[in-house]
Design a protein around this nucleic acid. Structure first.
Lengths: 206, 206
DNA sequence: TATTCTTTCTATAAATCTATAGAATTCTCG
DNA sequence: CGAGAATTCTATAGATTTATAGAAAGAATA
């Protein structure tokens, strides 16, 4: 109840969250055992319950850890005073860098969060929505500034940015040798051009 | 050894693959039990082993079922005699339609295949590579035809198409009310424009 | 009907996994 | 040092899971 914890507790708790993230990322929530997590920490299986009430709680903490600061960064970008293009670049950079830095927890959030009970998913869903809505706002600014065509579906655009970043994020996680900056650049090019005002529509579908 | 099976066997086997796909898609490979699969088929847990040697073999069959005809369709498109733009549209249509039709097996292939042992993943990996390479070939044609800029990284482009389609595929699976044709159209627009020859580069990064 | 082949069932062995309880150890600080 | 708090360990109950063996039921055929 009283919220105070030892320094060592806090450190070990963080260590536990990282170990759980690592194991969940590798084996999935159900494929990972509490023994696996404990071993990665260097303690015994039973001792893990000093830091987590249950395996599921561990998953909840990992998911939250994976997404929270990444959403905050997005808020920051959205509120900042930059032109649309710069905001999009910053978003993609932030998204992909998050993957490379704390790749495992973010991956776990994306792949395993649906195994959490409904109540626990609510907070995550709110964070996710906040992220998407901020991104939609950026695209609306892009339309207003004339950089993007009026007919653009901002929801589609935001969702597509997230999809492209997550998909490349996965690839980055699997292959740490890839040139992050190169991918950021190419993703930004793709998305900027993909939604930009066009001179002439190429296809005409009745 | 002798390869012949009853009609009923073949039907039930297919039924079993679909049940497994459904359960794996919902709970993940490790989260799903053989009891779950059997129940979805309407038989008892032990009887499942009349159709699969092991749970893992079931996963292997589901993954293969999920990807095989979808790759064949891609071969067909790549070999066909259409301009680049039509091939890209056909690819995206095929990819997203696959998701809507046999969504579960394809989802399982994408999300759970890494839990297969290395040997079993080899065949899947070959199919996946064939898919990506065909797509890269289509982009090369696009460059040759002048529709795409020379500097385009075809590997990046193909991987991005796959990423966008998988990401929207997941969303489509989760929400069957979405307008498939609308999403196909918008994805095609995004990817066509994203890789198209531009008049003037917007950003200049040293 | 009797025979044989196919399909499903029941029961269970063996392994694993989560979570808890209480003992043992280590740390902190007067 | 010594008391109390914090941390980790051991051991285990209880539930679940995969896979197998052999009996039972159903279908096909002569």
């Amino acid at each position: 109840m009283s919220g105070t914890h030892t320094d060592k507790y806090q450190q070990q708790h963080h260590h536990a969250v990282c170990a759980a993230a690592s194991v969940f990322a590798e084996k999935g929530f159900h494929g990972a055992s509490t023994k696996d997590i404990a071993e990665r920490m260097g303690i015994k299986q039973g001792s893990l319950y000093y830091y987590f009430k249950s395996k599921e709680e561990a998953l909840g903490e990992v998911c939250l850890f994976g997404i929270e600061d990444y959403v905050q960064r997005m808020d920051h970008i959205a509120k900042s005073d930059q032109p649309f293009e710069a905001k999009l670049l910053a978003t993609i950079t932030s998204h992909l860098s998050s993957y490379r830095e704390k790749n495992e927890a973010l991956k776990v959030h994306n792949d395993e969060r649906l195994y959490l009970p409904k109540e626990k998913r609510t907070k995550l869903k709110q964070l996710g929505s906040r992220y998407r809505e901020s991104l939609e706002g950026i695209f609306e600014e892009g339309i207003d500034s004339g950089a993007l065509r009026n007919s653009l579906d901002c929801h589609f655009a935001a969702q597509s940015v997230i999809g492209v970043c997550n998909s490349w994020g996965d690839i980055i996680v699997r292959d740490p040798n890839l040139d992050l900056f190169d991918i950021i650049q190419k993703c930004t090019d793709l998305l900027l051009n993909g939604f930009r005002e066009r001179r002439k529509s190429a296809r005409s579908t009745t």
